[in-house]
Amino acid sequence: SVNPMTYETQFFGFTPQTCLLRIYVAFQDYLFEVMLTVERVILKRLEAAPGGGEGGGVSPVQIRKGTEKFLRFLKERFDGLFATLETVLLQLVLRVPDHVLLPEDRSHARHPGGREELARLREEADRLRGRYEAEARAGRALMAELEEQRAARAQLEKTLRWFDGLEGAWREHGGGDPRESLAFLRRGAHRLRDVVGDVESKGR
């Protein structure tokens, strides 16, 4: 079972295994390249030596065999050593320890029950929004009534001013206070009636 090390990949931006594969292939290529260089240099040395390659009793085939033998041995050790290097790198260097959370995931430590908590918060927010909208409607209704009151008050004050005007007009035409003037009239009338009564009785 391959451990895809996705969490490490999330941090590094590459999979540790790929990184190590890249290192392995590169190292292996170098090993082969250097070995080929060694073999070429030896063959050149042999050609340049007195008596040339064959004269020296060493043939290129023998050199090639020597190269393969050394490489086979070295490659075996290389793979063994690289396996150790890989284990160490995957365990200690290119690894996010199990108890460690990457910065972008910190919220999971603060809100472990994320999904449920989010659903609850959303429900609560919807409830709050409903209540807010109800309050806002009530507010609008109250504002509307205040507006109506303003109009009604203006109307009523206008009526009161009309009464003031009425009384003002009464006063303006010498009537003084309407009630007093009426009382005055009434007293006058009574006196008149008394006088009339008096006249009538004397007349009889």
């Binding site: 996705t6 999330q10 959370l101 999904r115």
Partner: peptide, 29 residues
């Protein structure tokens, strides 16, 4: 303790990221 790791269900994993935002929204409301 072993820390949280992606569950493989993006929607579930995204929940925690959005909790602070939802808390702010609730506070604003």
């Amino acid at each position: 303790e072993p820390a949280w790791r992606p569950s493989g269900d993006p929607e579930a994993d995204t929940g925690s990221i959005l909790v602070p935002c939802a808390q702010q929204r609730r506070a604003a409301l």
